[in-house]
Design a protein around this nucleic acid. Structure first.
Lengths: 138, 138
DNA sequence: GACTTAATGATAATGATTGTCAAATGCAAT
DNA sequence: ATTGCATTTGACAATCATTATCATTAAGTC
């Protein structure tokens, strides 16, 4: 028997719904590809729902902590965010335009899991992303 | 028939051997785990072979471009370097102390390759790293 | 040794991210 | 609705890694 706790809902305790957070969430639904915090901030500004940069940072962080958005650390060290579907998965991301293909690899998950436990590691997380140039940008 | 070109040797054309580059290379052989540029710079300073920070950055970059060192972009966006063995592989890295286990996953490589070509991506590179706490740091 | 050119290093500049804190606001209870 | 209060916001400063600049130094070649 397994007990499951929805962490994203736990995190919601004491968390308020503000127009800024709503705006960030909306931006994420409207933007399809992975975007940086600054891009999302700029997008909101152009859209008329200007939100402070620090707030966008904070909101994206809490959303990712809650598991509601995916984060990828690009090769240059910058973090980019995207709304995620429920399942765990990885990405094929265009270095130039950000176009993203979602990919799944259950075998990779299992492999990462077994490797970690074999070596006695705890609190593990793994990253597996493929970067390249999409057909349009090639 | 396949033609192989050692890129690392091509890159060596017009490249000079300086005491700074030698020092960085030595530091890498002495340090076993993944280290940041700043850590390597500090290590050299304490060791007596002080090398300018900018030079350490440049040297690590060119070494990684030549494929002589491995780079991992940590979850916080900072790049860490380590001398690499010849084969392509991935890592299980301790978030706290940097202890690293080298792992190989030919299946993962092939999978990344096929996914990329299926979607028409070019100039692909992939990252697959596992972060966690090693037995000692747990 | 002289020359040419790449490399170095001190420092400034950049750029993303985080910290600060007074002012604004969501929300629950009245 | 209004009050009370803790959370959130936002403008700005601060931090931190990385990159650019550029005058000076030093490899490697003749």
């Amino acid at each position: 028997m397994t007990i499951r706790i929805k962490v994203s809902h736990m995190a919601t305790v004491g968390i308020r719904t503000t127009k800024q957070r709503t705006a960030v969430a909306e931006a994420l639904t409207e933007l399809d590809d992975f975007r940086s915090t600054q891009e999302i901030h700029e997008y909101l500004r152009e859209r008329g729902d200007s939100v402070g940069l620090a707030t966008v940072y904070r909101t994206l962080q809490s959303l990712s902590a809650a598991g509601d958005v995916d984060v990828i650390v690009r090769e240059d060290g910058e973090s980019v965010y995207r709304l995620c579907s429920e399942a765990h998965h990885h990405h094929l991301v265009c270095r130039k335009c950000g176009f993203t293909v979602e990919v799944e690899g259950p075998a990779v998950e299992r492999w990462a899991e077994s490797i970690s436990t074999t070596h006695g590691f705890t609190q593990v997380s793994h990253t597996f992303e493929i970067f390249g140039l999409c057909p349009n940008c090639s």
